[in-house]
Structure formats: C-alpha cells, structure tokens
Design a protein around this nucleic acid. Structure first.
Lengths: 140, 140
DNA sequence: TATCTGTTCTATAAGTAATAGAGCAGATAG
DNA sequence: CTATCTGCTCTATTACTTATAGAACAGATA
C-alpha cells in the first residue's frame, strides 16, 4: 500500500496516516482481513518515527477499524460491508458533518453544490466497493 | 445569541466557539451585518477567558467570515448569500469532506444513508436560509 | 539463535490551549 | 473631561499534545 503524507501540513502526521487508511478502507482498497505494513516498516517508508505510526494504528484500533496482534501484525477488522457502526458513532459523526457542511454553506457554496460534492465523493468510494455491496446490487 | 460549549469535550474551546458561529451563519441565524457579542461579553457568558474568545474571532476573521473593528465590534461579513468562496477554499474543504465521509463508510454506514444525512443536514440550514436564497429582495 | 512482530516504558524539544493581568488606541456616553 | 466600552497587543504561566528517540519485553517465525 502506497500512502503519502504532507509533512508541511498543519494536520498531525499520525492523523494523516489514520485518515489515509480510513479512506483506503472506504474505497475498498483495503478490506476486512487486509494486512497493514508493520509500524516500523511504514515508519521507515514514510521517513517518520515508528512511535508516530504506532499512534495512528492505536487510534484505528480504538475506532474498531483494525485488529492488532503480535503474530499477524495489523489487520483491517472492518470495511464497508461489516455491518452497522457501533452505538454512539453516528451521533458524534453527524455533529462533525454538520460543522463541515456549515462551513461550506457559510462561505457561499450553495446547498446543491455541497450535496453534489458529497455524492461524487461517495461515488468515488463506491467504484471499488461495488463488488462488496452487490448483495442488494447497488451500482454507482 | 445563545451559544453553548462543552468544557469536557476534546475539541478546543476556541474551536467550538468558531464552529457554533459558522453553523449559525450557515443556518441564517446570523446574516451579513449581524453583530456578534464583544469578546469580553461572550467570554463572561461562557465562563471562559476573553483571550480564548479572541482566538475564535481571529480565526473567523482569517476565514473571512467576520469583520472586526473598534467602533462596531465584531460583525458578520459573509453568509450563504454573499457569493462564491475564495480561491483555495473548495479544494481544502473537499479533502476534509472526503475524510469525514470515508469514516462513515468504513464504519459500515451505507452510501445512501450518508447522502441522506448530508441532505437533511443541509435542509436544516435551508429552513432559515430560505428567505435569503429566494432573494433579490432581502428583508433587514 | 536471530529476527520479525506489537507493546510498553522513559525522556526531550517544540508547539498548542487556556489561563491571567496589564496596558494602548479609538470610539461613545455621561 | 471623565468614564467606559470596544478591539488589539504584549508578557507570562501551566498543562497538554506532537514528534522525536532509545531501550527493552513477549511472543511468533525462520
């Protein structure tokens, strides 16, 4: 898995790593069971300290997205097809969504454009998740 | 304007204040020209230091959402009807949208539910912005 | 045995968040 | 003129976060 981070960003490195992995899971690039590189390996590839990667993986474990153990390393525990989210997730997430959408609206982006952006972003995930969601048969 | 913050949240206070004001602008509760309470007044109301509120207002000024000056205090500078966003905003915002939507998808929320959440959130803003977006004639 | 894995400890330097107090410039009200 | 409001700026402190670093342990693997 190739993963790129921006060292000059104001977003913390460990957060960027987490974000890129979450996006890879959403897009189907990573699925349940996919192995992640070891913390030391990924740290070496990115040119950062392994404690930083450790923090990212620990965050993902706390969120229930990955499983960590000594023998198999870091493995993706859930993806788009792993069932509904744990209790409490949706409310907290919806609050953050509200803030983010408000930002666009306040800056003058009209509602239909915002919704279109949401739709095309979701579609960009669905291209790769199509084979997962074919249970009900849901095309992009 | 009544504005509530959560002191036990992991979200910084100054960020919460900014977020609530952005949401108030998006919902039309605050429009271009609306006065914001003074930093000292709002700080007293919320029970926080006025430097913290100062930081929130400064952030909003940097984003171009409010205008600050000694004689008129803090005044909302733009709202949903103030035209398109400044260059660079949309790309950076879209990246954050991608991460947030990916989070929901990775946790198992299906695409249509995510899009529905976006739609209803936007609708909750549109209730108050309706009189602005039907404009040409904007009541004071 | 040697090496890989995650995991846990201490430690440090730099930055952020929130507090606090003092003061200045300009506008406004008495 | 005086008093008080406004945004704004400065120094300072405390606590927490970020990212670095090195060392070591437990267990699995070659």
């Amino acid at each position: 898995m190739i993963l790129s981070i921006d060292l000059s960003s104001d977003v913390p490195i460990y957060q960027q790593i987490r974000d890129r992995i979450v996006e890879a899971i959403a897009s189907g690039e990573l699925v349940e069971g996919s192995p992640l590189p070891s913390t030391r390996q990924l740290a070496a590839d990115l040119g950062v300290n392994f404690h930083t990667v450790n923090k990212s993986y620990d965050l993902l474990r706390q969120e229930g997205l990955v499983r960590l153990n000594r023998k198999s390393g870091a493995v993706v525990q859930r993806d788009a097809g792993s069932g509904p989210p744990e209790a409490g997730f949706t409310d907290e997430w919806a609050a953050r969504l509200r803030t983010l959408l408000a930002e666009a609206v306040a800056h003058g982006v009209d509602g239909s454009s915002v919704l279109a952006a949401c739709g095309s972003t979701l579609a960009s995930f669905a291209v790769r998740t199509a084979d997962l969601t074919t249970d009900q048969g849901e095309p992009a």
